[in-house]
Nucleic acid binder design. Structure first.
Length: 984
RNA sequence: GGCCUCCUGGCGGAAUUGGCAGACGCGACGGACUCAAAAUCCGUUGCCCGCAAGGGCAUGAGGGUUCGAUUCCCUCGGAGGCCACCA
């Protein structure tokens, strides 16, 4: 009987489910077992079903989990659904069906597809972020954030109640610039910055002021800030969800617009999120991406005082600026200063002497105050222009610098020269102080602006060696020049020195800034977690009592965006009313973003049915941290940063036991579509010959033609036409048409997409080849982390392997291939075969532990090829082989295991051990090199000493031949590896 | 523009710490079985010269370090990823 995967796979999948074969044990039930928490990034159950990329990571963790179970580990390996999200809501708007229905349908489909792959999940722990018993705790965690503040001294979150207590204490004081609340001790003041001023004692503030200050400290707070508003989606988006000025979902334009929104104070954790990356076993590139996203830069804030004197009568800004400001005496520069200062942030305080003008972000609040009367119109016009342009447009034409003079002047604190103040959109309001000191000689952007507006360029750094470049800024480090206080110093010393000098004068401060912004946490959507918050008549937030969680979504039939920033929930009039004591409040109508549910799901898997707590502390201590987390790199700065942040807050508040959630992390590489071949035509229809190289670019949506390209030589636009792989051959370094070898063909693999029509459906693969084969194929494609193209042609290799294993081990004859039934006698095993078996045990075990599944499978294939040559396979080998195969092809392995006479599943059968003694022969073959080139081999005893090995190698026939007439300068023996003679 | 990763046969890839380059699979070619095909089994398969024995060349290109480099360093070319007027 031939191998019937359909029947076998169904049988064992049912067996595993009904026997709960992969149940993770509670700590009390597994006293002597080591634990392992192996986690997949749970999927969003989309309408299009499983993609072939999902099973890649899932199979990898499955192999790893099955292996660990066989090694005696108590393994937690769960699966669930990240099921809130935009597509379900858009589907609901289109069909009028409640998003829940669509979501449930999609979950059922995903569950079916995942179960057909034979993955060893503990299905009793399945979670669904849209289930009220789940999002009850998402809301609860939000309340923890709402009811906490970040203590800057201890760098950790604490309950708000703690802050109140501290503030009530007689000795504790302070309200500085109106919002910040400070710890009172002297050290505390200094630790924060030293810039804060004590204005009033806490007890002098009225209750309203006190409340505002408290609210301003919460980790979850409301803010009226410019946000990314996407009119097409009818919602605001986080910075992370906006790509090139368009929404990540759908690619719609996004504009800046001030709105009242919920924010999470992730910036408070910037330092810890950065520092704690060190101890994590994550890919270095991914850590680097998080570091870049957090974007810590060390520099200084420097105050430039505004010069209140009016601009010279009748002189236009441009004329003044182009007059040689650096040389012209500025008689009154220090005489008559205004009392207002503009603070800039710079990472290059050593270039301060070269700051010849200043630039404010157009949105900067100071612009109104400083603009000279005769510049008002120009400034207003420019600001109008800027705000009318979307971020997208702003980025598209960022080649050409724009800006206008405000008519205001400031004084460079070191050179004492007057510098003009401009506004320009190349300065961002959101970073630093929203103002820069422009140093055109040493910053390329400032240089371009200075050239365009004819502003002075003053070099203050020279290269340590060589000449400064012409026609552009010298941006590297070097030696300070033309800078009285720091002349001759290296850039690093100069930075230090000038900052201390200015700090002593009180006009500068050492400062650290981050690119990371607070997390915009509200969305104008229906299908998300409602906030456990109600608002009073002033819009101040009041937490819903914990006992009232979960706050359910109101049942609605109309999910359409209102067309205004008012969320759909505002249409649920009954639901809106919330009574707190005597007061009637209005519920918060925003909902949480999709990231909320995925921020903590790994904790819920630990204790998914607990109605009293989000997770039981004993179980949490047992299972955390996650030992292995596998998922796509697309979550590098979104989910992985957000959940680290939430986890740290929960850690600070004592709800979890580890500072980091995911100890080891691996990114599976993208699976691309099958390689495509394209021939190119120029605009006049001429086919591009192989001699003209062309640069293929930008895949086009549509059927014909299928690609766009650019001629590398002429820059001419080209159109590409798909050619079949059969018609293509390689000539030297390039591909050409077989029928017309002068025509160039481009070969490349694209990301799978519906529009390209290169999407593979897991259902089809499993139906035609079986789950074991599909798993094996995806694992055999290459390293897990690597990006690799799909190639349907190669699947047959794994199919042959499995069928051959069946013929070798099932004890069944196969009519079709006329292979007789093989016996599995209890006879002893031949030495060399035994050696190979032990080597395979070792190699496969090591490879699984290191997640190198492609090479592990290659070893199994090799061992199976050996068995194919045998008439009968000794039982010692068959049993071992089935156990080694089990993590990779579990269905076939279970079936063979049963046929070998075992009545239990091999899910927890013991992984075989290898015998160190039996790995190697008593003799070994060593390569013999002469001058590093392989010239022969010699067989020596494994335990021979170096001298006798060298002697034997030197006397071997091939060595004698190559050494004849030469002088041996050096004899090298690399133990167990090779012998090398260096000769003259 | 900045940062990061990668480049090995016709294709996917292997080479664990600087030590036999091309494991294993696909494809291709030849053979066995078959009336024939499929399936299966057995060979060959980096390129060049050679009947062969054998030799030469070869890990994107060029250089360096080393007895020895796919591996380390430098320059250049190409592909991919992330961020992006981030001061």
């Amino acid at each position: 009987m031939a191998y019937n995967f359909t029947e076998i796979e169904k049988k064992w999948q049912q067996y595993w489910l009904s026997n709960k074969s992969f149940r993770a044990l509670d700590p009390a039930d597994a006293p002597d077992m080591p634990k392992a928490y192996v986690l997949d990034m749970f999927p969003y159950p989309s309408g299009s079903g499983l993609h072939v990329g999902h099973p890649e990571g899932y199979t990898a963790t499955d192999i790893y989990s099955r292996y660990l179970r066989m090694r005696g580990y108590n393994v937690l390996h769960p699966m669930g659904w990240d099921a809130f999200g935009l597509p379900a809501e858009q589907h609901a708007i289109k069909t009028g069906q409640h998003p829940r229905q669509n979501t449930e349908r999609n979950i059922a489909n995903f569950r079916r597809q995942i179960q057909m792959l034979g993955l060893s999940y503990d299905w009793d722990r399945e979670v669904d972020t849209t289930d009220p018993s789940y999002f009850k705790w998402t809301q609860w965690i939000f309340l923890q954030l709402f009811n906490s503040y970040f203590d800057p001294i201890d760098q950790q979150a604490r309950p708000i109640s703690h802050l109140l207590q501290e503030l009530m204490n007689e000795n504790l004081v302070v309200a500085p610039d109106g919002t910040a609340v400070l710890n009172p001790t002297q050290e505390g003041m200094e630790a924060i910055a030293g810039e804060m001023r004590v204005e009033r004692l806490w007890r002098e503030l009225n209750p309203e002021e006190q409340r505002q200050i408290i609210n301003g400290q919460r980790l979850a707070y409301q803010d009226e800030a410019p946000v990314n508003w996407c009119p097409a989606l009818g919602t605001v988006l986080s910075n992370e969800e906006v790509i090139d000025g368009r929404s990540e979902v759908g690619g719609y334009p996004v504009e800046k617009r001030p709105m009242r929104q919920w924010m999470l104070r992730i910036t408070a954790y910037a330092d810890r999120l950065l520092a704690d990356l060190e101890g994590l076993d994550w890919p270095e590139s991914l850590k680097e991406m998080q570091r870049n996203w957090i974007g810590r830069s060390v520099g200084a804030e420097v105050d430039f005082e505004i010069d209140a004197r009016p601009a010279d009568e009748g002189a236009s800004a441009d004329v003044i600026a182009s007059a040689d400001a650096s040389e012209s005496a500025d008689p009154g520069a220090s005489a008559e200063r205004g009392d207002e200062a503009i603070t800039v942030f710079t990472t290059r305080p050593d270039t301060l002497y070269g700051a010849t003008y200043m630039v404010l972000a157009p949105e900067h609040p100071l612009v109104d105050r400083i603009t000279a009367p005769d510049r008002r119109d120009a400034v207003a016009a420019y600001r109008g222009d800027v705000s009318a342009r979307s971020d997208r447009e702003r980025m598209a034409d960022n080649k050409e610098k724009t800006g206008v003079f405000t008519g205001a002047w400031a004084v460079n604190p070191v050179s004492e020269q007057r510098v003009p103040v401009y506004i320009a959109d190349y300065v961002m309001m959101g970073y630093g102080t929203g103002v820069i000191m422009a140093v055109p000689a040493h910053d390329q952007r400032d240089y371009e602006f200075a050239v365009k507006f004819d502003l002075p360029i003053r070099p203050v750094v020279k290269p340590a060696s060589g000449e400064a470049p012409q026609g552009r800024a010298f941006v590297d480090e070097g030696i300070a020049i033309n800078s009285k206080v720091i002349d001759g110093m290296r850039t690093d010393e100069a930075k230090e020195h000038i900052t201390s000098v200015l700090a002593a004068e009180g006009v500068a401060r050492r400062t650290v800034k981050y690119k990371l912004r607070d997390w915009l946490f509200s969305r104008q959507r229906y299908w998300g977690e409602p906030f456990p918050i109600a608002l009073d008549e002033r819009g101040e937030a009041v937490a819903v009592a914990e006992s009232e969680l979960p706050v359910l979504l109101p049942e609605m039939v109309d999910f359409k965006p209102t067309g205004t920033p008012e969320p759909p929930l505002s249409k649920a009039s009954d639901w809106l009313v919330y009574r707190s004591g005597e007061k009637t409040l209005r519920r918060e109508t925003n909902t949480m973003p999709q990231w909320a549910g995925s921020c903590w799901y790994y904790l819920r898997y630990i204790d998914p049915h607990n109605n009293e707590r989000f997770v039981d502390p004993v179980k949490e201590r047992y299972w955390m941290p996650v030992d292995l987390y596998v998922g796509g790199v697309e979550h590098a700065v979104l989910h992985l940063l957000y959940s680290r942040f939430w986890h740290k807050v929960l850690f600070d508040l004592g709800h979890v036991s580890t500072p980091e959630p995911f100890q080891r992390l691996i990114n599976q590489g993208l699976i691309l579509g099958q390689t495509e071949f394209h021939a190119f035509k120029s605009s006049d229809g001429r086919l591009i010959s192989a001699d003209e190289l062309c640069d293929a670019a930008e895949a086009m949506i549509g059927d014909e033609p299928t690609m766009m390209g650019t001629h590398r030589g002429t820059g001419e636009k080209l159109t590409g036409y798909r050619v079949s792989g059969e018609e293509v051959e390689k000539q030297g370094p390039r591909f050409v048409l077989k029928s017309a070898p002068s025509i160039a063909v481009d070969a490349r693999a694209f990301k799978m997409s519906k529009s390209r029509g290169n999407v593979m459906n897991p259902d089809d693969i499993v139906r035609d080849h079986g789950a074991d084969c599909f798993r094996l194929y995806e694992m055999y494609m290459g390293p897990l982390e690597a990006q690799k193209p799909w190639n349907t042609r190669d699947i047959v290799g794994m199919q042959r392997f499995l069928a051959s294993v069946w013929r070798n081990l099932s004890g069944e004859a196969d009519e079709e291939s006329k292979s007789p039934a093989k016996q599995t006698p209890d006879s002893p095993i031949d030495d060399s075969l035994e050696r190979m078996m032990h080597r395979t045990i070792k190699k496969v075990g090591e490879d699984i532990a290191a997640m190198r599944f492609n090479t592990a499978i290659a070893e199994l294939i090799k061992l199976n090829n050996e068995m194919t040559a045998l008439v009968s396979v000794p039982r010692a080998l068959t049993e071992t082989f089935v156990l080694l195969l089990a993590p990779f092809a579990p269905h076939l392995a279970e079936e063979l295991w049963q046929r070998l006479g075992h009545s239990n599943s091999l899910a927890r059968a013991a992984w075989p051990n290898f015998d160190e003694q039996k790995l190697s022969e008593s003799t070994m073959e060593l390569p013999v090199q002469v001058n590093g080139k392989l010239r022969g081999r010699v067989s020596v005893a494994r335990d021979a000493d170096e001298a006798s090995i060298l002697a034997e190698a030197e006397n071997s026939p091939s060595a004698v031949e190559w050494l004849r007439g030469k002088t041996i300068v050096k004899r090298l023996y690399v133990p167990g590896k090779l012998v090398n003679f260096v000769v003259k």
